[in-house]
């Protein structure tokens, strides 16, 4: 059984006051997320990611299609007690302290008061807010709110987590911590469905991804399947080279790009590595790295979505 099943989900908005017209925000989306997966939901702004979350979180009633979480319809309250959600734009009651807020969220999830209080303290520690636990949320920075949001999504120890742009608003340190938290949750067998437009985060964490553009599913599957490996091509990074050497490299490499430290060269196959080494040793240069060339998500975006425009 899939943990999240989305079938033909379609959402139309009506815009305009006098002459109403329909805008399709989501067009027949089909998705399945399996238990224990970290599933990335990607797409540029306005692709329909947040709309999908809003349908899953009962904010919107879909125009057509349906979705189930843990095998239950979206309105099932027992299912709701087993999931957690971090909204895209986390606003929480600013008159509450972080601790009060978490206890309140615990009460909404039927947690007894003492257990909610205990859980709140643990979570505040986990997301690095224990020092600000009794500060009012109005005094929180965007990053701190994001952390508080993550903590409230976890208050009921959910089996499935829905995170809408969990990394936005976090500084690099906070991002690394959030990544670690997600890895940790995955290790404990949680299913995580999260959206992002920050591709490096997705590449580092996801088992599978779905890519959405203008309300339509463009591609879904394992990252390694989606991103083309370019046959046997090799990418080598070298340093301490001069113009003369670059010219020599250009004789056999497919592409040579100068970098501040040296250059990046794309080779046709690993057979050319020996020749490359010979050339740079001659000039007292250094080989920094050699990797099979793989398309990055950025490249994919540029190719697939850029081409659609």
């Amino acid at each position: 059984m899939s943990v999240i099943e989305i079938e033909n989900l379609t959402q139309d908005y009506q815009i305009g006051f006098w002459r109403k017209r329909n805008v399709r925000a989501l067009d027949s989306l089909n998705l399945r997320v399996e238990a224990g997966e970290v599933f990335g939901f990607l797409g540029p702004n306005g692709a329909g990611k947040t709309t999908t979350f809003k349908i899953l979180m009962r904010m919107l009633r879909p125009t057509a299609g349906e979705a189930r979480i843990l095998g239950q319809p979206l309105d099932d309250l027992r299912m709701r007690a087993r999931i957690g959600y971090l909204p895209e734009r986390p606003y929480f009651y600013h008159y509450l302290t972080a601790r009060e807020f978490l206890v309140f969220c615990g009460a909404l999830c039927d947690l007894p008061r003492d257990r909610a209080a205990k859980r709140a303290a643990d979570l505040l520690d986990q997301v690095g807010l224990s020092d600000s636990a009794d500060k009012h949320l109005r005094k929180f920075s965007k990053g701190m709110l994001q952390r508080a949001g993550l903590a409230q999504a976890l208050i009921n120890d959910p089996e499935v987590l829905f995170l809408d742009e969990p990394m936005s608003g976090l500084d690099p340190l906070g991002r690394r911590e959030a990544r670690e938290l997600i890895a940790n949750l995955r290790a404990r067998g949680k299913t995580i469905f999260f959206s992002s437009h920050i591709l490096t985060d997705v590449e580092a964490m996801c088992d599978r991804v779905a890519i959405l553009n203008r309300g339509r599913l463009v591609e879904s599957g394992r990252l390694s399947e989606i991103l083309k490996t370019r046959s046997n091509e090799i990418e080598a990074v070298v340093s301490g080279v001069n113009e003369e050497i670059l010219a020599e490299l250009r004789e056999f490499a497919l592409e040579v790009q100068p970098t501040p430290e040296g250059a990046r060269a794309r080779l046709e196959s690993d057979r050319d590595i020996a020749r490359l080494l010979e050339v740079i040793h001659h000039a007292n240069g250094r080989l920094v790295s050699v990797n099979p060339a793989r398309e990055s998500l950025e490249d994919f975006f540029m190719r697939e979505i850029g081409g659609m425009k």
Binding site: K54, M57, R58, M59, L77, R78, R80, A81, I83, G84, Y85, P87, R89, P90, Y91, F92, Y93, C105, L108, C109, D110, Q152, F162
Partner: peptide, 10 residues
């Protein structure tokens, strides 16, 4: 947007 948080809960 506080409603989003409430409605996601049971």
């Amino acid at each position: 947007g506080a409603i989003a948080n409430i409605l996601s809960k049971p």
